[in-house]
């Protein structure tokens, strides 16, 4: 394989990874605050149509990204009101949010079907991305850099800032946090909104960058992958990045194996059905997590209050 080929492959992997990385980072923060929001897929779809729609109307992809973040956050607020104010069951409410987001995005998308926008690609001068190395560094949509910057940002926020400390405290022991005087509900509102915004931007990566168009259910289940990533990462930011790229790599490997005609060029692989390659990313993810877990280094960082409603005893 030539260096050019490897670089081109990396560019593809970055494209596969960025949406799940964004949504996963958002969900990580939500879960760190003690809330389990299974509505990621729905929020991504709302983000995808919001980002696309705003871009169509304003001709500004930057506003589009903001719109996607706003759309995802607004959708997440429905969930937040229910689980925080009314203490509804988080699992069921999250799933209902996915049904809602799917329906809402389809409805909003009716008037945008068949339209296109200029893809939100690299904003660097073309000259920089001319040669392969330049493309490797400068060849992406601003959303890719945003996602990569958000990884250390979230890490730093959770680890080193006062707000991050409070957020983790709320997720670890909501009653203690409450008794010291922090507003558990407000912290969780903020976390859920952040998760919604990140999922929204992740969704917009589909509708604004990969395939600049709107199509119903275009996220094709990536929200569920993002949820699984948070578990895979053991609620650690760094491992989330690694996990997202690992999964992106496996998705690419499936296509690479098929496109290379492994069965034709390497006859002994003829016996391997195409479904094997399609199942591989999921099997390998389980295998990887098993190895990590079996070595005892998984160190599940799961917040103690994850998924439980907060009921202040008064």
């Amino acid at each position: 394989m030539s260096p050019e080929y490897i670089i081109a492959a990396i560019v593809t992997i970055v494209g596969l990874t960025t949406p799940i990385l964004l949504a996963g980072l958002g969900e990580l923060v939500v879960e760190k605050s003690g809330v389990l929001n299974l509505g990621v897929e729905g929020m991504m779809l709302v983000g995808a149509i919001s980002g696309f729609g705003v871009t169509v109307l304003t001709f500004s992809p930057w506003l589009g990204v903001l719109g996607a973040a706003a759309g995802g956050a607004v959708a997440s607020m429905l969930f937040a009101v229910l689980v925080l104010q009314l203490n509804s069951n988080q699992v069921a409410t999250g799933l209902a949010l996915t049904i809602f987001g799917t329906g809402l995005s389809s409805l909003l998308g009716l008037s945008f079907t068949g339209r296109i926008i200029v893809p939100f690609l690299s904003v660097f001068p073309d000259a920089l991305a001319k040669n392969p190395i330049g493309r490797l560094i400068f060849g992406y949509s601003p959303i890719v850099y945003f996602a990569l910057i958000m990884v250390p940002a979230v890490y730093w926020f959770l680890k080193s800032t006062r707000a991050g400390l409070i957020l983790r405290a709320v997720g670890e022991n909501d009653h203690s946090a409450h008794s010291i005087g922090y507003s558990v509900v407000m912290v969780r509102y903020a976390a859920i909104a952040f998760g919604g915004a990140m999922a929204g931007i992740g969704g917009a990566y589909f509708s604004m960058v990969i395939t600049p168009m709107w199509a119903e259910k275009m996220t094709a289940g990536r929200g569920w992958i993002a949820l699984a990533l948070v578990v895979f990462a053991g609620w650690r930011t760094g491992r989330l990045l690694a996990g997202a790229y690992f999964f992106g790599f496996l998705m690419w490997l499936e296509l690479f194996a098929k496109a290379n005609g492994f069965g034709t060029t390497l006859p002994f692989l003829q016996v391997i059905p195409s479904q094997f390659w399609a199942a591989m990313p999921y099997v390998m993810t389980i295998v990887a997590l098993t190895i990590i877990s079996a070595r005892g280094t998984a160190g599940s960082n799961a917040p103690a209050c994850l998924g439980r409603p907060f009921l202040p005893s008064t």
Binding site: Y5, A8, A9, V11, T12, G15, L16, P19, F206, I210, T211, M213, A215, M218, T219, A220, R222, M251, W252, L255, F256, K258, A259, N260
Partner: peptide
């Protein structure tokens, strides 16, 4: 769509 896009890129790269 995302998988279709990635598969197309992979074919182009080959």
């Amino acid at each position: 769509p995302p998988k279709e896009a990635a598969a197309t890129e992979t074919l182009i790269n080959l």
